[in-house]
Design a protein around this nucleic acid. Structure first.
Length: 322
DNA sequence: AAACACCGCAACCGCGTAGGA
DNA sequence: CTCCTACGCGGTTGCGGTGTT
């Protein structure tokens, strides 16, 4: 037995919104507000739309002060940095960018920014042989060089209840979680103040499909990855923080070949907090110089001037190999 | 000029969760 | 405590626009 639909879809209009619908919705909300009830709103406003659809239209398009158009370099930097820190928590990222919606940022990331980062990675490491690029619903993997370009200042971001710093594990709670996994945390690993520290930090990231992993495992088909939302604005729950276990899941890659592959709390009934053998060997030491070079070469530019023409390098930018 | 391919964005879908009954 | 409803989120889809052949 399936989930009950949120509304009677048979009588609901779908697809693009007309200007008439837009103005109806805007006028109603400006006059009466949402009333805290999106389900009832469309009927009151005289719209043949699902409440969810109205909400989305309002939040993503009609709401005042919505910013459309080009993202600035600063916005790029914030997005990348936060993505590296917390993964695909678009609503949280959007909260740091006034006027931007989570949908906007998500689209921007998927269609442009990710490619920019990949392109930059390729220009930085042209000798690398490309592996297959993960499909779009796979974990959003951020390459190290791209992060290095964003690294420069460990920006601190705010949310309603706390602040956190890019590359900083978002909560100390994870230390407890990790210790439960028979691992010893590197002490004082929560902040990275130098490029070298960042490189060292990389040793603690799990690896999947030859990609370094940052933030959450958000492979996220809706059935396996969307659990454990971070409840910013409310007290953080411990299980929610398990997404961040990937930040420092071992006491050193040389000592521990296990990697946290599924840091989520629920993986569709499959293994939870599963430890698995490191999928492949990699020579981090050989890459250190590359990483450092990338850091120094790109630390002053975020996702901008160093980017190559994505249209002309599509073959390249679809791959990144570390 | 037409056909095809690609891209970007708006919108939809389904799930997890909060909160009230 | 359980159930139910609505909300919010993140992943995915589909369409229209643009570029390429």
């Amino acid at each position: 037995m399936g989930r009950a639909p949120c509304c009677d879809k048979a009588n609901m209009k779908k697809g693009p919104w007309s200007t008439e619908e837009d103005s109806k919705l805007r006028e109603y909300i400006e006059k009466y507000g949402t009333g805290g009830n999106w389900i009832a709103l469309p009927q009151k406003a005289g719209l043949k739309r699902c409440g969810k659809s109205c909400r989305l239209r309002w939040l993503n398009y009609l709401r005042p002060n919505i910013k459309h158009g080009e993202f600035t370099d600063e916005e790029d930097r914030i997005i990348c940095s936060l993505f590296a820190t917390i993964g695909s928590r678009w609503s949280i990222i959007a909260a740091q960018l006034p006027g931007r919606t989570d949908n906007d940022i998500k689209n921007y990331w998927n269609t442009k920014l990710k490619k920019k980062l990949m392109a930059m990675s390729m220009t930085s490491q042209p000798h690398r042989k490309p592996p297959p690029f993960p499909s779009s619903h796979h974990t959003p993997s951020v390459s190290f060089p791209s992060l290095s370009s964003l690294y420069k200042d460990c920006t601190t971001y705010q949310d309603p209840t706390r602040s956190f710093t890019a590359f900083e594990p978002v909560s100390s709670v994870q230390a407890d979680l990790l210790n439960n996994g028979n691992t010893t945390l590197p002490t004082n690993s929560s902040l990275i103040h130098t490029p070298e520290a960042l490189v060292n930090y990389m040793q603690y990231y799990p690896v999947k499909e030859n990609f370094l992993m940052f933030g959450s495992e958000s492979s996220c088909t809706s059935s396996d990855g969307s659990s454990g939302h971070i409840s910013f604005g409310r007290e953080m729950k411990q299980e929610n923080m398990s997404h961040f276990q990937g930040f420092c899941a071992t006491n050193g890659y040389e000592d521990n070949h296990n990697f946290m592959l599924n840091p989520g709390t629920n993986n569709g009934g499959k293994n939870v907090n599963q430890w698995a053998e490191k999928p492949r060997e990699y020579n981090l030491e050989n890459d250190l110089e590359d990483f450092k070079r990338l850091i120094s070469s790109s630390s002053n530019n975020c996702c901008n001037n160093n980017f190559i023409d994505e249209n002309k390098t599509q073959e390249k930018v679809m791959y990144f190999y570390y």
